[in-house]
Design a binder for these strands. Sequence first.
RNA 1: AGGCGCGUAGCUCAGCGGUUAGAGCACUUGCUUGACAUGCAAGGGGUCGGUGGUUCGAUUCCACUCGCGCCUACCA
Length: 929
Amino acid sequence: MEKTYHPASIEQRLYAEWERRGLFAPAGDGAPYCIMIPPPNVTGTLHMGHAFQHTLMDALTRYHRMRGHRALWQPGTDHAGIATQMVVERQLDAAGQHRSDLGREAFIARVWDWKEQSGGTISRQMRRLGDSVDWSRERFTMDAGLSAAVTEVFVALHEEGLIYRGKRLVNWDPVLHTALSDLEVVAEPEQGQLWHFRYPLADGSGHLVVATTRPETLLGDTAVAVNPEDERYRHLVGRQVRLPLTGRLVPVIADAYVDPAFGSGCVKITPGHDFNDYEVGRRHDLPLINVMDRDARITAGDCDGKALPAGEIPAMLVGLDRFEARHQVVALMQDAGLLEKVDAHSLPVPRGDRSNAVLEPWLTDQWYVKIAPLAAPAIAAVEDGRIRFVPDNWAKTYFQWMHNIQDWCISRQLWWGHRIPAWYDAAGRVYVGRSEAEVRSRHGLGSNVSLRQDEDVLDTWFSSALWPFSTLGWPQKTPELAAFYPTSVLVTGFDIIFFWVARMIMMGLKFTGEVPFREVYITGLIRDEHGEKMSKSKGNILDPLDLIDGVDLETLVAKRSSGLMQPQLRPQIEKATRRQFPAGIPEFGTDALRFTFAALASTGRDIRFDLNRIEGYRNFCNKLWNATRYVLMSVEGQPLAAPGRAPATLPDRWIRSRLGQALASVHEQLALYRFDLAARALYEFTWNEYCDWYLELTKPVLQGDAADAATRAATRRTLIEVLEALLRALHPLMPFITEELWRKVAAAAGVGGDSVMLQPYPEAAGFPADAAAEAELAWVQGFVLGIRQIRGEMNIPPSKPLPVLLQDAAAADRQRAADHWYLLRQLARLDSLRLLDSGEEPPVSATALLGGTRILVPMAGLIDLAAERERLAKALTRAEADRGRVEAKLANRQFAEHAPPAVVARERERLQAVEQEIRQLGEQLARLG
RNA sequence: AGGCGCGUAGCUCAGCGGUUAGAGCACUUGCUUGACAUGCAAGGGGUCGGUGGUUCGAUUCCACUCGCGCCUACCA
């Protein structure tokens, strides 16, 4: 074996072998265990958040597979309607083309080409991460089968009246020319202005003042509203104002929506271009006037679908972009003496999450899902525990949204996606069906009737919502569906609880009658080392593969600063990157990355990714590698005791007991999705117990001549047996290094099997607790630590063997000293160990206390007297402070009366111990003079 | 406005109604000890955001408060 661990030399080889041998497919007849991958965008790449979640899903899958479950981790990707269409449109744009130049079919063919070309990126990344997904079941939301499921669901919901078509105000993206659902709108506060306009009363008796942030919508006003309680305006309610610039008469109405304290207390009402006004308009039966086109330019306008009278909209405004129109309207109002004042005003501006364009509330025909009837059972499923959120407080977030849920706008004016299965005849009547043929036959429409399919496609999340069952073959009744649905757990981020999780629950319950998953494990979000979200535009992204393989600085800078939406940020991104990674990123390997993710997966919402952590876990891999190297060197070609024989030595008994407890903790924590605590239990056992103590404790047995052949053979057995189990225990988190090492270890141990993946996960019961061995070894450790402390603080070189005396040793301690002399000698590097006779005067020594026993290191020539005095004085101060605390506690009658007797007893013991310590330290100090 | 989260060592984070609050990294000192310098050994470093309450006992539970962040809904 190499002296250091080199991940690159093993990872890809092992993955290829696993995949070739089909080890990822569900096997055996155990209980099914299934995780559906949250499908990433097929044309995208996996970022750190994906890598994080994939690590956890893979760990769960491998863990359950090893425990004998029939485990399926189902892979796939989604078609990401808007995002993907935008990418291809940008490519066309670069060639000076528009999608309309190609036509719908040719454009879609182009998108498929792009998918074929870029779709391999994700699966390559997943292979590098070690994801044990069943590739034979890979799915894509636009696959024929999944598309059929989409059609089936659409038709069924429509037949039930849960999908309807309606003319509504929608969030219209004037750049992408599509409607967006509420969830795709990002509203950030932006600095704007509040214009105060005078609207003259129709009878010429004066004016009232309205305040608005959107002057251009004045053209579509159909009322002015005041609060019904507002004394200032009560007399105006029911009268009319003459709308400036158009001359139209509109009523003054009273509506509680108006806040009298804001602005002037009068609000212009534009039902055609504002969601709140739309509701006001419905309450007061106001007409809807539309004054913008699909590009959000001013048009001549229409009222409830009919054209406005000619000249209603000033001709000079028609055709202007809405922001240009805003300036013009303000100018016209000012010229007319109708601008009262302008205030600076910050307001939330809704933008599309993809295009970043300012959205326009716009009246269009769209398809909606009536959500309330679907939401009720989905709420119940979480309330009654059929679905459990982990951590459980996320259920609150879920409930809050579900109780306020709005109908879901599912149509998108795009070409890339599932086309809506609806057809229109010449009269505009709509027919919904699985196909045009079905529509014709069902509605008796002969071939003489021309039908035209709806141009729109469905929101991508509509197909994602079916993912847990569409991937298993629904609407067919497949064996996979029967076996793996409901799935075991969904692993995802809180950012898509509404987008995806809630919708899967609704659709799953509706169409299968069962929940789609029993648990939802909500992970934190990976952020950079400053807690910032990682994003291309911030230039702080990390490619998981760059952490695995390493990357040089120039490549990293190029990756981060190319293709930016805001190229002006480039210099600062480059500077920050050069500062943070002056030497690029070294190679850490997949296992180190995965272990880091696991160790970071605590319950928090934000997870800062810190390169120092991954470096530490790369070192851990190397530690494991070298521990194995030691074990193999110690075992190979040497007699090995038969498995199952009682271990011969104290360290053997101890390490088995410790392993059992570590395993118990791992099982317990994994059941709670506390990957961080499971990782920690394994890390601490491996490094602090197995390597730091046990391996060292085997050296006196194996390397000296203190032990007989049978003892050595037994120690070799424990050495390799514990390592073999440990590698299995680590495998779900670090699949590659454990596979590589396990094969060598299993061969040396005579364990059958050719992949650790297929081995049983170690159970705590195989390594029962041994309290006696733990107590005994704790004594050994205490002894060694005492000597090391003296050595460390007195700067005695480790190479110098020390003569040691024991004073006041009780019978048990004498026995232990004799029994474990050969361990103590090597670990503490002792020259000799002698028991002082009672009454024998010890030489001047440095002291360590071990229970009631004093460990003395004679000082002649070794130790600085003053330094030892200082050391003892410090220990004495600490002990006295401790005594003070314990005494105070025991002196408190309330404590003695109320605290549990066991606690009181423990405090009493502690007092005795600390008093003895003080006495002994005092004596030692006195002896030093 | 409503909901949620966070605040513990220089940094990143665990933890918990009961010994002296832990880990990794960083820091100091010593070490080519036969698996490992990606290492070994020893050490320094925290009034657990603040105030009050419950309790024999609070970093832990409760209330209030300060600071930071997120989500949902938003007043034109």
